[in-house]
Design a protein around this nucleic acid. Structure first.
Length: 136
DNA sequence: GCCAACGTTGGC
DNA sequence: GCCAACGTTGGC
């Protein structure tokens, strides 16, 4: 089981929208590193859902509902999407400021590779985020 | 809206 | 294959 963090601008696709849709395919990734992370995802992997720009916070947990396949929105075979389903909304969103303020999370890609839109998360980091969210 | 960081493109 | 130019992302 692996853990990941995916970013979305809330006005483009928010976690609430995902809760409403029950399932979506994660499209629009046009960065090789992010793409490679998508390809590495396995069904059942857990995802932190981060809102960039507005909010700048982790708002929910989602999971990989289906592994990478050709992005249906383009003919370019370089790009893939994965199926994503909501798990739960966090009681208290974890803001970027909180993550940055916590020394234990200083190594998170969210801090070190700010612009990467699909990034791996360590199990300890995932647990810490849940702790900060008041989920455990 | 600005700008820093960073990834990609294209000329040489 | 280098690197300057350019475009995009995302925090502030």
């Amino acid at each position: 089981m692996n853990y990941w963090l995916i970013k979305s601008e809330p006005f483009k696709y928010s976690f609430d929208q995902l809760l409403k849709d029950k399932k979506t395919f994660w499209e629009g990734v046009r960065n090789y590193q992010a793409r490679n992370n998508l390809r590495a995802m396995k069904k059942g992997d857990l995802l932190l859902f981060y809102h960039s720009n507005e909010g700048k916070e982790v708002v929910g947990i989602a999971k990989v509902a289906g592994e990478a396949y050709q992005d249906p929105t383009t003919d370019d075979t370089n790009w893939v999407v994965v199926d994503v389903a909501p798990v739960k909304k966090l009681k208290n969103p974890v803001t970027l400021a909180m993550v940055k303020a916590d020394k234990r999370l200083a190594q998170m890609a969210l801090v070190t590779s700010m612009r990467l839109s699909v990034q791996p998360v360590k199990r300890e980091e995932f647990d810490l985020i849940l702790e900060l969210a008041g989920e455990q």
